[in-house]
Design a protein around this nucleic acid. Structure first.
Lengths: 407, 407
DNA sequence: CTGCTTGGTTCACGGCATTAACCTGGAGTG
DNA sequence: CACTCCAGGTTAATGCCGTGAACCAAGCAG
């Protein structure tokens, strides 16, 4: 069981965290509103807010007249108190972005990755270079950077070294955390890209205000980010949510993971294009890279294309229904470049197929939406990792910093 | 986000709960051991333990000499401090059982259910009758009964009325909590049977010492209980874990839920027997009721039976692999009467098939075991519901009593 | 200027876990 | 048998925390 004591300091930290989170996510709020929504006494709110104002973390942001009484002073997180840097290590490029605490992007850097299986050393260099580049570009004091969050596509061990296993990059046991820490003094945080995207959507996108959600990501591969009661579900070793490799057609098509009948082999972009090629007597869809080919397929008017897409919607709906049945979320958010492309055109059909495959009750309790943040959402979510630490460190359970660098 | 304040009382309750849980689950412990494993100071341990001893909740249980020093006094939960009653509303009978706090069963009562879709009124009568019967049978003071936990097979709304939706019983919107509370002053707790069984296995069975587990239940139907970080995963409306109705053969056999290709249609006892009948040119397996017929099938030596069972193991392994991929548990516990029957004979094969279908890493991090508690586990888990309240009420988050009767 | 209303602050109070000093009971030793 | 050692457990002083009640601040109506 939970062998974790609670001390009087934890309490203050917990309350501070609750307030800070509310202020950060729900915009300018008065002390009064804070007191009401957190059930803290006004005295405590004043006390804690005063402390945060003294630190410069929170600032007053104008006032709003309240009918007949003293106007209420609004509070917000001081955008310039600190800065967050987030990076997205994709298959084709490393993207680094700097945000202020209002999550406004102030600078951006991008580095193409040439090789299919890039050298970790090279990626580390890109990341560190990007970090200094965006800091310089934005003209920000390096000491004011609260942390550097990095999103990668594999699973990340929650240890000090943040060892990464990423099949798509050909990495197996790369201590990315240790490597990055050797090159910078800024606190480094590393997590899976699907999880950072999920975090971003939960806080600033299609998941706002929801506590239980599943973010379903369909790109070349297929994955999911499960959010349970407001926090990401990780499982025993942070590799939960491998939706793409669940069996949906027992004994079906071979997946690149080696197994038969994985969902990814049917709805992942690679699988869809492959299925089209087979249905089209060996002739592939037009377009050079996967993304344009997929777009072509979506626009194609042939009967074969329509059939393949129709089937894809069927498989996807069944896969989403599995998520609904297993996780009973309030919302399913469909994303990933292929997922968005499909969703923009077929969302009603996807909803319908899901309704047919899911149990009545859980389906009735959920809504299916599309991701609302653009392609930078992964980096944005990565940038929130250091902020999440600010909150979590105060909350409970883990002894600070989700097992990753603390500088 | 978590709009929940923490006050100085919560802290004490949280720590008290941590200690009580440790003492209850990990048997007699000295104050010293408690201090070490909870990181609380010895002073606080003494203080809190003293309080609980004064209440009669905890008692000293002999002492153990420690080499050269003062012998340590062991502490345990006083078995006679209170009693717990648990009930299991099955498809064929209502079972009620009374336990002391050492979870020793002191009395038992059972009532057959005649109809396929029993009248809620009748079930309520059985439950209340059983409650007084076991109390009398055990010769226990009714005032010492801490609570009455009831397990049903459907989903339970977490409201004061504990409205039950149970397809198998033909119940849709039965306010079982309200009905029971009208007939007794003892605090009533109602939850899903799979979840109570899971709780029992986690605390006293195959899940001991594990924080992330999935209890996979295969009977006539198929379900699962997901335990994440020590607590049951419920989802937005407590209906998470509907493993049986996830699609595993897209477009496959029709399931009794109306959908095609559900796992339940392939590995649920009803589905297995049905598949055997089809493979056996329409002749069903011998045996009267489902359970004996399934046993016959397992013992049958025909090629057809072997083939059907072999396929069943295949589907089951793929289903378990889906759980492993999605939830990344430390342990999968296979149970339910059909699951146990299959597991006792085919566990190595099931493990092998799962290994083939799951991703390498999550599979390597999990172990697949069988349930260890007998058929009374559901009732036993139900009996722990009032105890869980004792713990949780002190822990955080919910304002007491998981939305169900508090008397 | 008075009264009213709403927003925010100050301060004494009781509750909490902690630390450090202090008992308690048994085993070994001369 | 006294003395010492040692681990288990208790007690009192301390510092921190959120709360409630009294209090101050700021705008409006008359």
């Amino acid at each position: 069981m939970d062998a974790r004591r609670t001390t009087v300091r934890d309490m203050r930290r917990a309350n501070r965290s609750v307030l800070l989170t509310r202020i950060w996510l729900d915009g300018p709020l008065s002390r009064h509103e804070l007191g009401q929504s957190t059930a803290l006494s006004l005295a405590s709110v004043s006390n804690l807010v005063g402390e945060m104002i003294a630190e410069g973390l929170v600032e007053e942001a104008g006032s709003v007249e309240s009918d007949g009484g003293r106007p209420r002073v609004l509070l917000r997180v001081a955008p310039g108190y600190g800065f967050l840097v987030g990076a997205d290590v994709g298959e084709t490029r490393v993207q680094v972005e700097l945000f202020d605490l209002a999550m406004t992007a102030l600078a951006k850097a991008e580095y193409p990755i040439a090789a299919a299986e890039p050298d970790p050393r090279q990626v580390t260099d890109h990341l560190l270079h990007g970090l200094t580049a965006v800091i310089e570009q934005a003209g920000v004091d390096p000491a004011a950077v609260l942390g550097f969050g990095v999103a990668v596509s594999g699973t990340v061990e929650r240890t000090a070294d943040a060892v990464v296993h990423a099949q798509t990059l050909g990495w197996d046991g790369v201590p990315l955390g240790a490597m990055l820490r050797a090159g910078t003094d800024i606190p480094v945080h590393i997590d899976n890209g699907a999880k950072t995207l999920g975090q971003a959507e939960m806080w600033f996108g299609a998941g706002r205000g929801v506590r239980h959600a599943v973010i379903a990501l369909v790109g070349s591969g297929v994955g999911a980010c499960v959010v349970a009661d407001g926090v990401g579900y990780r499982g025993a070793h942070s590799s939960a949510g491998e939706w793409g490799h669940t069996t949906i057609v027992y004994g079906g098509r071979r997946c690149r993971c080696g197994n038969l009948g994985c969902l990814e082999a049917y709805v992942g972009a690679e699988g869809v294009l492959d299925r089209f090629r087979q249905a089209n007597r060996g002739r592939p869809a037009a377009g050079g890279d996967e993304e344009t080919a997929f777009g072509e397929l979506l626009r194609a008017s042939s009967r074969t294309a329509a059939k393949v897409l129709d089937e894809t919607v069927g498989y996807l709906g069944a896969g989403v229904a599995n998520l609904v049945n297993l996780f009973n979320p309030e919302r399913v958010v469909l994303g990933g470049w292929a997922g968005l492309a499909l969703g923009e055109r077929y969302l009603p059909q996807i909803r319908e197929v899901t309704a047919r495959h899911a149990l009545r009750q859980p389906y009735a309790q959920t809504s299916i939406e599309l991701c609302r943040l653009g392609p930078d959402a992964v980096a944005m979510g990565a940038a929130t990792l250091p902020m999440a630490r600010h909150f979590r460190r105060t909350l409970a359970r883990d002894p600070g910093g989700q097992g990753i660098a603390e500088a």
